[in-house]
Simulated assay, not measured.
Amino acid sequence: MDIGFVTNVVFPFTKGGAEKRIHEIGTRLAVAGHDITIYGRHFWEGPQVMDYEGMTLYGVAPTQELYADERRSITEAIDFSVRLLPHLRQTAAEHDLIVASLFPYFPVLASKLTTLTADTPLITTWHEVWLDYWDDYLGRLGPFGKGIEQFTAKTPHHPIAVSSVTADRLTKIGPSRDQIEVIPNGIDVDQIESTRPADDGFTVLYAGRLAEHKNVDLLVEAFDRVAQTASNVSLGIIGDGPERDRLERQVQTLEHADRVTMLGFLEEYEDVLAHMRAADVFASPSAREGFGITFAEAMAADCTVIAAAHPESAASEVIGDAGFLVSPTVDGVATALERALEGERPSTEPTIQAQQFDWDTIADQAEQCYRQAIIDGR
């Protein structure tokens, strides 16, 4: 197959879940003999078009700031899409398939325009479906976000969702459930298992964006309660985001503030893995997760995982019986922390549960889905 990936951000020059998924699947498909081209912003040093780890990187637009006031920039997305069009018009017919990164939507619509004349199938990967969350994210511009999401969902394409929760939410605005393929996000199990644990690790760890729906404030309060009777425990919080200042102020008010450390964003992925390998418990009571890659990573690191049972979270789908699912409340998290810190283990070994998310397995699933999309498009 000759596959073109469209993404305004390219891993490892920018680091995020969506671009990492493209990189991991793309490199594995390249090794399997497929031709892979990634169309993105020119974040790398070197020529506009160059070979990288068996793939071709094609810089269709210069680098540009991705965020404005802690939110993804709409003007950046539109700028990238406009610059993408003339390049993809010239090359779309050369590809058997175009796989467009979903967020921030406009590149998907631009890709669809080019595939109409080239008669090339288009696939998108839905990491989340926001629905009413757009009102919280964009405020008075919420209806605009909803409209673009719905329009993208109704645009003819082959949708992939990273979880059944995300697939079910997608059916509310677009395709029927039987049209959506579920292919989860992945992890490099060997890399995680071979990572040396951090020397300055923590008993309990959180890693992720510091946003309101992540409920890190509940974890902090629950930990402080448990620390009253568990004298040797510590909590490490990895990540950054709009809630960081508020969380730092909250930590300062805790009775056991000296046992909580906010590490901020760690540039090196291996450093995050090292802290997971050192931790006994990984806790993230997030109320909204389209997948929840940190759960899979923490299970591969042999942590006891604590997550929230919530209808808008795929945590239960990822963790299964290999962790503790609790109500997203201080009481719920505190009770699970006590159980985990006393040595109680879930019924399924976390490392066994994590194996199904290895990138080799995910790449095989993606390859089969891509082949089927080509067949269906003929």
Rank of each mutant, 00 (worst) to 15 (best):
V272T: 14
S284D: 00
F357N: 06
Q368R: 15
A300C: 04
A198M: 10
A301I: 10
P350M: 07
H127D: 13
R209F: 01
G320A: 13
S284N: 05
G145P: 03
T351R: 02
V326G: 10
F5M: 06
S164L: 00
V333Q: 13
K20D: 08
A354S: 00
P311S: 09
F265I: 05
T155W: 11
Q250T: 04
Y58P: 02
I352W: 01
E270W: 06
Y52H: 07
V31K: 15
A315L: 12
L218M: 13
V165Q: 09
H158M: 04
L170E: 07
K20R: 14
D2C: 13
I25M: 11
S234I: 10
A32H: 04
M262Q: 13
L122G: 04
T155V: 13
A278I: 08
D200S: 15
D200G: 15
C369E: 04
D2E: 14
M276Y: 09
I74T: 01
W130T: 09
E248I: 00
T195W: 08
Q365C: 12
P285L: 06
I293V: 14
D51H: 06
V129R: 11
V305S: 04
H127I: 10
H127R: 09
A283H: 00
A287S: 08
E367V: 02
T261I: 06
T294H: 02
V305Y: 00
A336H: 08
T27M: 14
E317G: 09
R244D: 00
H95D: 01
D35E: 15
M55Q: 03
W130E: 12
V251E: 00
Q353N: 10
M276W: 09
A153R: 05
K214W: 07
K214C: 11
F103H: 06
S111T: 13
D271Q: 12
Q48Y: 06
G145W: 01
R244H: 03
M299E: 07
D79V: 03
R89M: 02
I148C: 03
G147E: 14
V10N: 02
D79T: 09
H87Y: 02
T166E: 09
I38V: 13
V99Q: 00
Q250C: 02
D376I: 12
Y67I: 12
T329W: 05
K154E: 14
V82Y: 05
H87M: 01
K20V: 15
A354T: 03
T195I: 15
E344C: 11
D132C: 11
L138G: 04
M55K: 03
Q90W: 01
R339N: 10
G264T: 14
S347P: 07
F80R: 00
Y52G: 08
P175Q: 07
D217H: 12
K20Q: 14
F151C: 09
T304D: 10
A161P: 08
T75G: 03
E270D: 11
R249K: 12
I36C: 07
S111C: 11
A340D: 10
P104W: 04
T253W: 01
Q179A: 09
H87T: 01
G16I: 04
E128W: 03
A309Q: 14
G59Y: 05
